[in-house]
Design a protein around this nucleic acid. Structure first.
Lengths: 141, 141
DNA sequence: TCTTTTTCCTATCGGTATAGTAGGATTATA
DNA sequence: TATAATCCTACTATACCGATAGGAAAAAGA
């Protein structure tokens, strides 16, 4: 339940690799080898991250990917959204009347509350927290 | 991302129906029709809920399902676990060394923190909160 | 200009889980 | 004994995911 896709896990590892890279120089296939990820698959992941503005891509020789901003500015909620989409436990969190059954659905608030809890966690963590070995900025735990 | 299966959504609706049933009498196919769920599919859902001890099943004529305890004793974390399994963002939340890559994985704490946040939310909500139209017992929101 | 190295785009494939269906065996009531 | 319900097993169709393949476009250096 609530398992995170390999895509997102790979993406975070790739971002962490870029963040640890001295001078944040542009790198490409090097990431796949270091992190033991299928190169071609990682390609698509980095493209998504670039489209979301989290990494900057440079084409051609000596090109590659570099972090678009400092690690403490890379919010994990954005990373997850870029790779696996917005947090949406049920479809009706956005638009009502999808199930066409109950206009005042009794469980909708429950799911919206869960989404809020998850968004809050992911919104308060950055890539910097991850590369500092999971230090937790939150008040809880 | 983090979408909830139809199985769990159906299950919660079925439980809410049982909770609203006067006297908590045993009912069966009636739920499927009222909640507009495929009867045969709902069957399997109720079996799971019964196996988890959340509902009590009675076979034979006049049989059916009834809530095993009062709605405020039915913790949503148990419901979700019964239908979709434990909350496990990544496999290594339980056992370390699965990826075989980094023994001190930098993102593990991050995912465990997420699991904790989700478990906390689901563990503090009961079926009673749902049928009271999503009243929120938590301090946040 | 030509070659190399890289990102980018599209298409495909196998595996797996999900949602739903089907048929019948078992159990209890009347 | 007939009926009505849960239980059990198997099947199908669909969709997504992880991964692969082949090439087009772009930028740098010779």
């Amino acid at each position: 339940m609530f398992s995170v896709s390999a895509r997102t896990q790979y993406g975070i590892r790739a971002l962490a690799y870029l963040a640890r890279k001295p001078g944040w120089e542009a790198v490409g296939a090097e990431i796949a080898e270091a992190e033991d990820i299928s190169p071609k698959y990682l390609e698509g992941i980095l493209t998504r991250l670039a489209a979301a503005g989290l990494v900057r891509s440079e084409r051609g020789k000596n090109g590659g990917y570099r972090l678009a901003r400092a690690p403490d500015g890379v919010v994990m909620a954005d990373v997850v959204a870029a790779l696996d989409g917005e947090v949406r436990p049920v479809d009706c969190v956005d638009s009502l009347g999808i199930c066409g059954h109950d206009t005042s659905c009794s469980s909708r608030k429950f799911w919206i509350g869960l989404k809020t809890a998850i968004d809050e966690y992911l919104g308060n963590r950055t890539l910097a927290d991850i590369i500092e070995n999971g230090a937790d900025p939150g008040s809880a735990n």
